[in-house]
Amino acid sequence: MRVTDITAVPEATELAGGRGSRRVWWSRLPPAGWTGVLLVAFIAFWQTSAVAGWVPAAIVPRFDEVVLAGIEEIEAGLFVENLASTVIATVAAHLVGSMVGLVVGVLFWRKESLGRMFEPYLVSFYAVPLVVFYPVALVVLGINDWPIIILSTVMAAIPMALNAWNGFAGIPPVYLRLADSLTASSRQTFFQVAIPAAAPLLYTGTMLAAIYALIGVVAMEFMVARNGLGSRIRYLYEAFDNPGMYFYIVSTLAVSILLVGLLNVLFRRAFPRVLAS
């Protein structure tokens, strides 16, 4: 009789036992590490393609030139001034827009007829680029931060209102009957049942509100403004300063990523289980 010796197949044993312990380095990289790797790869590709002439310098400057232009802007104090203007306008528009949107969402949820009456207008406004009203706002309010903040606030409020309304309207009725049976006050029902139950769509709403606020602020700064990232991009574009313009484009992208990332962290801290489930 032939007896199979399992130790006679060392490759198989090593393979089975070795997979867990000998993982390649990239499989152990956390998501943040991957982001870093991709960023470095992108910068390397950018620099290589610009140096090798794959893309004309008039279209995409070298990455090192962009960095040098950025250092000049920072040293001149222009970057901080323009960044602060954009960030303040965006945060103000986002905060006020989110609050207004939340109130409108609650109102439409509690007063169904009101919701049905205004829904078509709200959805239409969602589809219209509200920056078209900027020239009118400029005539009324003058060239200052207010027209930008007001229109961006409206842009932020609309997605927040629609998502808040859908979130509240989608709360399982039994949660509200439960609160009722436990004699919860209106305030307790709102903060301890309705808000957590609607949190997934409130999260979507506040994210969209932040994105729309930033789009609105930068777009209007680009059209006419005294300062801000958008205004600086336009100025440097008209001055044929490509590296400087790219520095501000990259800065705008960074602001967008940081804003969304910060909101994500805050929301996940406030409602850890809701978003996880």
Partner: peptide
């Protein structure tokens, strides 16, 4: 609160632990 109600539908709050769900009425009180 002297009259308790158990519903047919799923009424446990998914964002709360079992203990938090059980003590929810007490917390409101």
């Amino acid at each position: 609160r002297s009259v308790g109600f158990v519903f047919q539908e799923e009424s446990t709050l998914p964002w709360k632990t079992v203990e938090e769900n059980v003590s929810f009425g007490l917390r409101l009180a």
